[in-house]
Design a protein around this nucleic acid. Structure first.
Length: 486
RNA sequence: GCCGAUGUAGCUCAGUUGGUUAGAGCACUAGAUUGUGGAUCUAGGGGUCGUUGGUUCGAAUCCAACCAUCGGUACCA
């Protein structure tokens, strides 16, 4: 008989790739959300909310196989064995919702969405399995003005969040130009993505991380990384590699010069020329609008979602004095996504802002002067006076003052002060029998007291309580409101 | 998936060449100082020493496998 056998306790940990977010972070996120909402609505976008769950079919994933049921997504079968999954972005649900409700929606349909998305992938230092996206899309127009609007939106959002043009830059390109390049080096005649093109595009996409040498290796035989792992390359010829590499090196602050140089390398590829003219239109539009927060350049190394984008692609990077935050936003034109459902071409374009990094950064920035939720702590001096305390707390709350009534063990009064301090309360209310008899309450200014404490050395000075003063009981609320307004 | 590093209390870590009942600080709970700000004192809770197997009279310690975490890399709508 061994009753005291140890029970195993559950481990208190967040699952890998997930996070707990606390008060001040969430407040900051709400703030950012308000700003982005406002900008989207200024541009005439309306909100849409779709469920977290979609059918796997709608998301455009192949059925998970038995060995790897959740490749990339979180998927499961419902009671009828149909596959469902958590959404992995906000665009696929938009395509589905638009197709489903298209007879009641105005085209072009401008909508924005905010919410968490989930990806069942290995998390990294700044990558998680659950993160928030903030998307704006225009469904049903092929106008380059729609693409340009996406760029303007990002500029405006960043401006409203307090960043300046030196902090960010949007890199713009066009997928048709890449297709033209593929034709120019005679890799393929089709515009349909084959295996080699995919390898080439992936290699180009890694330019910023691996540098020209790394990309060159990936275009040739392959590349061995620092851990000794080998990645198979595209096995292109030296001529082909040279052309692609010189294409990638086209970087000019003058967008029109960049376009000139691209034109030269693309040659007479039909699709490439088309891409160039689209890119040129967007550039003209961006430059024509005389705005102060414009910061972009044409960059041939922008690739993004491989099976997704069909034309314009762009990506915005944010760098701050403390270092680069990386890409915080991206998007582009996807003309084929809706036609999966409707069978008709519905050209669309959109932008997605990943706000987690933005929020983390902004949260760290003002991490030092955080304000707690609690304005006032009502302390418990004497447990027999609890009805007094409740009355005070209720009165303060009715007047919109965030009030915490101490509900811990009240025996150690010093501990209540410590608690008030740690919660960030601005004031403590102290009422004992003396105060009740005199019909007063003591208000203690915790912020002032904390400041004074630096210059206090003796215990006697403490006892004088310079940061504390009495007011008449009925004047309490008015006084607190006045003090909080300072 | 591949490569590498690391696993002892909620957190940060000690733990000797293998040797009693595995420790400290912080945090937490209670008590004391009987009405005031990160204080002091006392007591307490909290550990399958990542897991399993092996060597041994004896394993947190030595060996093996596995698992997990972290980092890099691949994939990425």
């Amino acid at each position: 008989m061994n009753i005291s056998k140890k029970k195993s306790r559950p481990k208190a940990i967040t699952p890998r790739g997930f996070r707990d977010n606390f008060h001040s972070y969430l407040k900051k996120r709400e703030e950012v959300q308000r700003v982005v909402n406002r900008v989207y609505e200024l541009y005439g976008f309306e909100r849409l909310e779709t469920p977290a769950v979609e059918t796997v079919d709608a998301l455009g994933k192949f059925l998970p196989d038995i060995n790897r049921p959740n490749e990339g997504v979180f998927a499961w079968q419902d009671e009828n064995d149909a596959w469902l999954a958590l959404r992995y972005d906000l665009t696929a649900p938009l395509a589905r919702a638009f197709s489903q409700h298209r007879n009641t929606l105005q085209v072009p349909y401008k909508r924005y969405s905010f919410g968490p998305v989930w990806r069942n992938e290995k998390p990294g230092p700044d990558r998680f399995k659950e993160f928030y996206q903030f998307d704006a899309d225009i469904v049903g127009t092929s106008s380059f003005m729609a693409d340009a609007e996406m760029c303007f939106i990002v500029f405006d959002v960043l401006k409203e969040l307090g960043f300046s043009t030196g902090d960010y830059c949007t890199r713009i390109s066009n997928r048709k130009i890449l297709s033209g390049l593929i034709q120019a080096v005679k890799l393929a005649d089709t515009t349909i993505l084959g295996d080699i093109e995919l390898v080439v595009f992936r290699a180009i996409d890694k330019l910023d991380r691996l540098g020209l040498e790394g990309v060159k290796n990936l275009l040739a035989k392959g590349r061995t990384d620092s851990s000794g792992d080998f990645t198979e390359g595209a096995n292109l010829s030296a001529d082909q590699i040279d052309t692609i590499i010189s294409f990638l090196q086209i970087t000019n602050d003058d967008p029109n010069k960049t376009l000139e140089e691209m034109k030269f390398l693309i040659g007479d590829s039909e699709i490439g020329r088309q891409g160039l003219s689209e890119l040129s239109n967007i550039t003209d539009t961006l430059l024509s609008k005389d705005i102060s927060n414009l910061s972009f350049k044409i960059d041939p190394s922008v690739v993004r979602g491989l099976a997704y984008y069909t034309g314009t692609v762009f990506e915005t990077e944010l760098s701050t004095p403390t270092g680069s935050l990386g890409s915080i936003s991206g998007g582009g034109r996807y003309d084929d996504l809706v036609s999966r459902f409707t069978g008709q071409k519905v050209p669309s374009t959109g932008v997605s802002i990943g706000i987690d990094r933005l929020v983390s950064f902004l949260h760290e920035c003002d991490g030092n002067n955080e304000k707690g939720v609690v304005d006032v702590l009502v302390t418990v001096m004497d447990e027999n006076l609890i009805h007094h305390y409740i009355k005070i707390a209720t009165e303060l709350r009715e007047n919109g003052i965030n009030t915490d009534l101490y509900v811990g063990n009240p025996k150690d009064f010093g501990k209540q002060m410590k608690y008030a301090d740690l919660r960030g309360a601005a004031f403590a209310i102290v009422v004992g029998t003396n105060e009740v008899e005199a019909d007063i309450v003591q208000i203690k200014d915790l912020k002032l007291g904390s400041k004074l404490a630096d210059n206090i050395s003796s215990n006697e000075e403490w006892k004088e309580q310079p940061a504390q003063f009495p007011v008449k009981r009925e004047a309490l609320t008015k006084k607190i409101l006045e003090l909080l307004r300072r």
